[in-house]
């Protein structure tokens, strides 16, 4: 499952992710990272069964950890099931079902935001 980890640089430059990987032995996949002078925001993917452990340890180390679920919202009234989102998503979140309706596997979403401007009907938004 995906976790959004935010940490402040004020608390020093401790390598939180590397530390947690070494301590727990859990392999963490970094899917997106945004780091500037004062703070950092990293989106990581961890195995479901290790979620609690990772969250608790990172929190102890001073990070704010939030579980990312249903990151993207689709307004079913606005959506006309065209499929403009299908090809632009790097994570293959969107696909057609057998009735040519859009289905979403939003657990794959890494909130890159590419689909938002690609939707002609302004039907997609980020939940945050």
């Amino acid at each position: 499952m995906k976790l959004l980890v935010t940490f402040s640089r004020k608390k020093g430059r401790e390598p939180i992710i590397a530390k947690v990987v070494l301590e727990t032995g859990v392999l963490i996949n970094v899917e997106r990272a945004y780091i500037d002078a004062m703070e950092g925001e990293v989106l990581i993917d961890v195995p479901d069964e290790d979620y609690m452990r990772i969250r608790d340890r990172m929190t102890e180390l001073g990070a704010i950890v939030s579980l990312l679920e249903h990151a993207i919202r689709r307004d079913e009234h606005e959506c006309i099931d065209c499929g403009a989102c299908v090809g632009v998503c790097p994570q293959e979140v969107f696909s057609f079902d057998e009735d040519w309706k859009i289905t979403m596997r939003d657990e794959r979403c890494v909130i890159c935001g590419k689909c938002l401007p690609a939707c002609p009907h302004d039907a997609l938004s980020l939940v945050q």
Binding site: I80, D81, C82, G83, A84, V86, G87, V88, W100, K101
Partner: peptide, 8 residues
């Protein structure tokens, strides 16, 4: 491929 028109 991405369709821009809706087949549904």
């Amino acid at each position: 491929t991405s369709s821009l028109s809706s087949f549904r």
